[in-house]
Simulated scan of single mutants.
Amino acid sequence: MIGLIKAEYRKIFTTSLWWALLIPVVVLGFGAGWLGTAFGGIIDMVEELSASLPLGLLAVALSTNFGTIFALLFGAMAFAGEFRAKTITTTYLTANPRSGVLWAKLIVYAGGGVIYGLANVLFASLGALLGTGQDVANFGGFGSWLSVGGAGVLSMLLWTLLGVGFGALIANSVLVVILPLVYKFVVEFILSISLAGTAVSSLGPYLPGAAGNGIVSNLAVPLFVSAVAGADEPNTPRMAFELLHLFFGGTYGHPWWASLLTFLGYTAVFVAGGWFVGTRRDVA
């Protein structure tokens, strides 16, 4: 297993894919942090409450929910890239059983997912600091920033592992790029609109994209409202929550840990599916 893990590290760091996908994560993170806090001036209640809006928390959530697609693609190419380069045969021949390859990739790419998550949180936070003139109050306190940032890193990690399972299941470098993009930004968007206002609208938070977004946003939005409203939080209109969730992801009243457990389930299903198909697939 140690040899397989070392081999996976070499495969990652001797190619440019890992940093090519990391660049948009960094750029999106910094941009979301900068713009998210810069727009704080449009909210009149800043003056009414005499409080500093912790927009940095929302900026981290926003950047995470956009950046996770790159973590998924990074993980998906773990197997799909080898099928494209036709190195999968050698990989399988040097590993017995094949499941050892999957475990090695999961371990190594989990580390990559953590790197993506840390880069996202740090650059989103840096952008937020610069956007507010280095006002740390825009993070609602160190504990709030740490919890939202930790959730962001965990979200990136899980999206990466889901990608590994998805890539093992599909094993086509074109489809593993196209299908996630189409699903996350088209199919699930249509599904969410279709479910709204129906008898089964409660299923919305359990869709894969919504669950993945909710890991961070269902934590960041309540922390944001709590920091702004203070003792008046119980009287905060539901519309305020829903408006924030509309822009920053997540679902009103749905706990972040429920989103985490849901997405863990999706990750386990794709990894199990990748293992089942991968150990039975013929390779040339």
Rank of each mutant, 00 (worst) to 15 (best):
G212K: 00
S50C: 04
Y206I: 05
V108M: 04
T262M: 10
I23Q: 01
L17A: 11
L28A: 12
L203T: 02
S155I: 05
K6T: 12
A211L: 02
I88H: 00
P237Y: 04
L223C: 04
A229V: 09
V186N: 00
V46A: 12
T64G: 11
A85W: 05
L130H: 01
A258F: 12
A210V: 08
L102N: 06
L126W: 06
F185C: 08
V101H: 00
M77S: 05
V271N: 03
F224R: 08
A137W: 02
T94L: 15
Y206M: 05
I107T: 11
G133S: 07
G212Q: 06
V108D: 00
S50K: 14
A137Q: 14
V25F: 10
F79T: 08
T14N: 09
T91Q: 05
S259R: 09
P208S: 02
F248A: 03
V25L: 05
V200L: 15
Y183M: 10
E233C: 03
A231R: 13
D232M: 12
I107V: 14
Y9T: 11
N218W: 05
S173H: 12
A32Q: 11
G33S: 09
I12H: 02
T87E: 07
A61W: 05
P237I: 08
S194A: 15
W159A: 09
V46G: 14
Y109A: 04
A32D: 06
A7F: 09
G75H: 02
L93A: 15
K11V: 15
G29W: 10
E82P: 11
V277H: 07
D135P: 12
E233A: 15
T236I: 11
L4S: 12
A85C: 01
V108L: 04
V26G: 07
I215R: 00
L146D: 14
A268E: 11
E188V: 08
V60A: 03
P24H: 03
L17H: 11
T91D: 09
G111D: 03
G265T: 08
S147C: 01
T279D: 12
M239T: 14
A78Q: 04
P54W: 02
A95D: 02
V108S: 00
T279Q: 15
W103C: 07
V114T: 10
E48Q: 12
T87P: 07
A211N: 08
F30N: 03
E242W: 05
T89V: 13
G204Q: 07
L58V: 10
